[in-house]
Every structure is written in C-alpha cells, then in structure tokens.
Computed example of a mutant assay.
Amino acid sequence: MEQAKILIVDDDAKLRDLLIRYLSQQGYTVDSLPDARDIDRKLARNRPDLVVMDVMMPGEDGLAVVRRLRAQGEPVPVIMLTARGEDIDRILGLEMGADDYLAKPFNPRELTARIQAVLRRHHATPVLSESLTDTAPAEFGPFMLRFEQRTLTRGDEPIPLTSAEFAVLAVLARHPRRPLTREQIMEMALGKGGGESLDRSVDVHVSRLRKALGADGPRFIQTVWGYGYVFLPDGVGAGE
C-alpha cells in the first residue's frame, strides 16, 4: 500500500505533535487541525486517507462532525479518540458513523495498529472462505453490491457506507441464507474476536446498514434471535 495520508483533528497540541512525529516515523504523511472548523476544506483540497479525530473539541465536537460528514455522503474512514472509554460512548461513536474508537490514554502503537486495520478494510475485500471468493456483484431487490469496486448502489444512486459497514454487508452477502453469529461476522469482516462489546458493535453496523437500505433493510438482513444475522437476497425467510 502506498504511503497513506492521515489527518489528526485534536485540540491537544502536545498530543497532536506526538502523533505527528510518531506516525511520520511509521511512514505516514501526517497533517493536523486544532479543531473541526477547516475539516471540510482539508477533505476537499488535500484529501486524507483516514482521519483521527477527538470527540471533545471546542466548537463542533467529533461526534457531530462524523454525523454531518456521513449525512453528506462522505466515506473517509474515521477513528475517534476520547477520554471517555465507556461502551456507551464507543457505541455512540459507531452509530454516528465512525470506523473505530480508541479511549485515551492510549499507546501510539495501538493507534497505528487500528489505522492499519481500518485502511485494510477500506481498500480490500473482507476475508472470506475459499469457496466464496468470486467477485460477481450481489443483486438483491433494487440494490447492487459490487465487491471489487466496493460500492453499493440503488439503481444509479450510490449509497455511501463506512469501511466497516461495507465489510459487514459483504460478508453477509457472500453467505446468503446462512445464519452467521456475531462473532463470525466480526472475525470475517473486521478481523476481531468476539466478546460482548464487539458483539454490540456488529449490532450497530447492522442497524446502520438497515437504515442505509431504507424500508427494505430489515427484510434483507434479518435477525436470528439468540444467534446472529442472516442475509436473504430475495427478502423471504426460509420458512415463508
């Protein structure tokens, strides 16, 4: 992968300087902002491959920024930083459209690992079983999911997804009518093991996917109670 550009948005000058030095040493091109006032201009003029953004900032906070960017159809990957590490805060960040979430204080090596993981998800198809490695698009209802192009469209209209949302949908679509546990989805799509916290992350991504698909979302991605989720390309359950 060619040298990636990282944008740091954080009002803590010492942390910005630390991350600029450290990530530059890891081979990234790094730019920074002290708040979100100029983030739209940065995205337009010197587009980063990934944004690392603090939640608590003066002016527009990180959650509001991510929510606004996603509402505008902006797909740039975002890792959120926060001094609050409770699950509810992390889940809220994911619900707004963040790709990952890291609580302060943190080891810069962990941030680097998360950056690498998010960039891999954003630029490559998910890890799938060998028998399901074809790249033919998946059609369901009015939707077309193109794995190689990493796009979801409804007719001619593109539907923006975060890297994590695309990865989850791709795994589900590659295994039609096969119920998958949350742990299986998390491992195949995001390369992470299970656990209650990560299980809830899957629920958040599925919820956002259903919203992106509109009224048909719950019909195509159905809940298997006490187990996980199943993708039904015709929107009809096995017992119907």
Rank of each mutant, 00 (worst) to 15 (best):
M1L: 09
Q3H: 15
K5E: 07
I6G: 02
I8P: 03
V9C: 08
V9G: 02
V9T: 06
D10A: 07
L15T: 05
R16V: 12
D17G: 03
L18M: 15
I20C: 11
R21S: 12
R21A: 13
L23Y: 04
L23V: 13
Q25A: 09
Q26L: 10
Y28E: 08
Y28R: 05
T29D: 11
T29W: 02
V30G: 03
S32T: 12
D35I: 09
D38L: 14
D40W: 10
R41S: 10
K42N: 05
N46K: 12
P48L: 06
P48K: 08
D49R: 06
V52L: 11
M53I: 13
M56L: 12
M57I: 08
P58V: 15
P58D: 07
G59T: 10
E60A: 09
D61T: 06
G62T: 09
L63N: 03
L63P: 01
A64T: 12
V65N: 02
G73Y: 07
P75L: 08
L81D: 05
R84G: 04
I88Y: 03
D89E: 09
E95R: 14
M96L: 07
M96A: 12
G97D: 02
G97P: 05
A98H: 04
L102H: 07
L102V: 12
K104M: 14
P105M: 03
P108H: 03
E110I: 14
E110S: 10
L111G: 08
A113R: 13
A113Q: 14
A113P: 02
A113K: 11
Q116G: 14
Q116K: 11
A117I: 01
A117M: 09
V118D: 06
V118K: 06
R120T: 13
T125P: 04
T125M: 10
P126E: 13
E130M: 11
T133V: 10
D134Y: 06
D134W: 07
T135K: 12
G141W: 05
L145I: 07
R146G: 13
F147R: 15
F147Y: 15
E148V: 14
Q149S: 15
R150T: 03
R150D: 07
T151E: 08
L152F: 04
T153G: 00
T153D: 03
D156M: 06
I159R: 00
P160Y: 03
L161E: 01
T162N: 03
T162W: 00
E165H: 02
E165F: 00
A170V: 05
V171A: 01
L172H: 01
L172Q: 00
H175R: 15
P176H: 09
R177N: 15
R177Y: 12
R182W: 02
E187L: 13
M188G: 01
M188F: 09
A189R: 00
A189V: 03
G191R: 05
K192S: 09
G195M: 06
E196C: 04
R200Q: 15
S201N: 15
S201R: 04
V202A: 01
D203C: 04
V204K: 01
H205E: 04
R208I: 00
L209C: 01
A212P: 06
L213I: 02
P218E: 00
T223R: 10
T223E: 08
L232S: 07
L232E: 15
P233L: 02
P233T: 05
D234P: 10
V236E: 15
V236A: 14
G239S: 13
E240N: 06
